[in-house]
Design a protein around this nucleic acid. Structure first.
Lengths: 135, 135
DNA sequence: GTATATGCAAACAATTTGCACGCCT
DNA sequence: AGGCGTGCAAATTGTTTGCATATAC
């Protein structure tokens, strides 16, 4: 992270270091406020505005990913390509390994004149525990 | 639409009829406010609150789909299965035919205990016109 | 006639922003 | 030393909600 920040003329601050460290530790796809709470444990003076600003900076640099979950943003520090399943009952977000989806043929799109930069594949359904409760 | 509404004990109002008709006519994946403007042309007294309420109702009934685009919702009246490409430059949303993505193997997920209800595949990149301007 | 839907406006919640001060380089 | 980053609080924006009235059934 430090090299990437410095490479773009931006500064390595304690707030950014702690934020990314905490996000990478969390496996729950936290919201901005949840990240704020986690970071505040180490930096009691940090503000929510700084969290939002730095989430934006780190997202632009590709150091984290933002998920759109029912109108609010959640964040993911795991950069290895994978998908998500959001439970429509408890709203928890689960990781789905990319290998479950085969033959995503990206090249075809480029032939239509689009410059393809990224993609997101999201599933919606019931997680095993909610599925049990439903019945 | 009328049968589906009545089937769930809900009423067929002029607001709902015009809203869905207008949305189906629009090919631009409009926001709630854009839909409000279009509908207001026919129903000058309609309120934005009613538009939001009815977008929710019609979405729950599966009569339209909601897209999450950079923190705000856009709506799609085209129910045939297709994907979207959002231009990261002009933010326009383009339709991508499902046939461009082959072998999306949904069955594998179910074997892990999830009840799979829906999925969304979204691409991000540059549309042909923005791609030209960039270079 | 009765319950649901509407219009209006206020409330809400997530996110952004302006500004004076602080800290990274 | 200089400028980017921060904390704080206020502003903004998309969306939701309470309530009295209107309307579909």
């Amino acid at each position: 992270m430090e090299q990437i920040l410095r490479g773009t003329g931006q500064r390595v601050t304690r707030q950014r270091q702690v934020l990314l460290t905490e996000l990478r530790r969390m496996v729950t796809h936290p919201t901005a406020k949840e990240i704020y709470e986690a970071v505040r444990y180490h930096l009691p003076q940090i503000s929510l505005g700084t969290v939002y600003r730095n989430l934006g900076v780190l997202e632009d640099l590709g150091l984290l990913r933002r998920l759109e979950c029912g109108g609010i943003s959640r964040y993911d520090g795991d950069l290895h390509r994978h998908f998500h399943l959001q439970c429509v009952d408890c709203n928890q977000v689960y990781d789905i390994d990319q290998s479950l989806v085969q033959n995503l043929n990206m090249d075809l799109l480029k032939s239509q004149g689009f410059e393809l930069l990224d993609y997101k594949l999201d599933f919606y359904g019931l997680c095993p525990s909610c599925k049990k409760t439903e019945s």
